[in-house]
Amino acid sequence: MSKTLRASDLAQFTGSQTWRRHPLNPNITYTDGAHHVARAGEAYWLLDAIVAHQLDPKVAAHEFQVWKLVVAANRSAVLTCEDGDHHLVAKQEIGFTDFPLAEIILWFQNQVIFLPSEY
């Protein structure tokens, strides 16, 4: 399957009809938009990373989280978590990714991962 994720597709997600439970932590769900990112971008690993970071009490203490993945030209990436007021909470270096977009932002609030447009 080739990656079919395009940034222009993300604007269509303005709410969610379905919330899927994450297999690593069934208390955490994700929306249609986050599912589209994972499916079309072959990036379930990105949802897994956000969920795994919730095991860190420093991260979990923040009720609202802004997760940003930035992919460099050499295909390395950095995944960061901010608290919503631009304060860095967590940072993960990724040696290689084939994620198709140069950048994506996901939000995490009330145990739900979602696109900002779905707020």
Rank of each mutant, 00 (worst) to 15 (best):
S2L: 10
T4D: 10
T4Y: 07
L5Q: 05
L5S: 05
R6S: 11
A7L: 14
S8H: 09
L10I: 06
L10N: 02
L10E: 05
L10H: 02
A11P: 00
Q12F: 08
Q12N: 09
F13K: 06
T14C: 09
T14L: 09
G15M: 04
G15T: 06
Q17H: 12
T18I: 12
W19A: 07
W19I: 15
R20W: 11
R21I: 06
R21E: 14
R21D: 14
N25H: 10
P26M: 05
N27Q: 13
I28R: 01
T31H: 04
T31P: 04
T31M: 07
T31F: 08
T31L: 06
D32P: 07
D32I: 08
G33T: 01
A34L: 06
A34M: 06
H36V: 02
H36I: 05
A38L: 02
A38R: 04
A38V: 01
R39T: 15
R39G: 01
R39A: 15
A40L: 10
G41Y: 02
G41I: 01
G41C: 10
E42A: 15
W45F: 15
L47Q: 14
L47M: 13
D48F: 04
D48T: 09
A49F: 08
A49E: 15
A49R: 13
I50S: 06
A52P: 01
H53D: 14
H53M: 15
L55H: 15
D56R: 05
D56Y: 07
P57A: 08
P57I: 03
V59Q: 07
A60N: 13
A60I: 00
A60F: 08
A60V: 00
H62E: 10
H62W: 03
H62C: 04
E63M: 00
Q65F: 00
W67L: 00
V70Y: 01
V70A: 08
V71N: 01
V71Y: 00
A72I: 00
A73H: 05
N74I: 00
N74V: 00
R75E: 03
R75C: 04
L79H: 04
L79C: 02
C81V: 11
E82R: 11
E82Q: 11
D83T: 04
G84T: 05
G84C: 10
L88Q: 13
V89S: 03
V89M: 03
A90I: 01
A90E: 08
K91M: 14
Q92S: 10
E93D: 13
E93Y: 10
I94N: 11
T97A: 05
D98K: 10
D98Q: 11
F99S: 03
P100S: 03
L101G: 12
L101F: 07
L101K: 11
L101S: 12
L101W: 11
E103Q: 15
E103K: 14
I104H: 10
I104M: 09
L106M: 15
L106I: 09
F108D: 07
Q109F: 11
Q111W: 12
Q111G: 05
V112M: 13
V112E: 13
L115P: 12
P116C: 08
P116W: 04
P116F: 06
S117F: 02
S117G: 12
E118A: 10
Y119R: 15
Y119G: 08
Y119M: 09
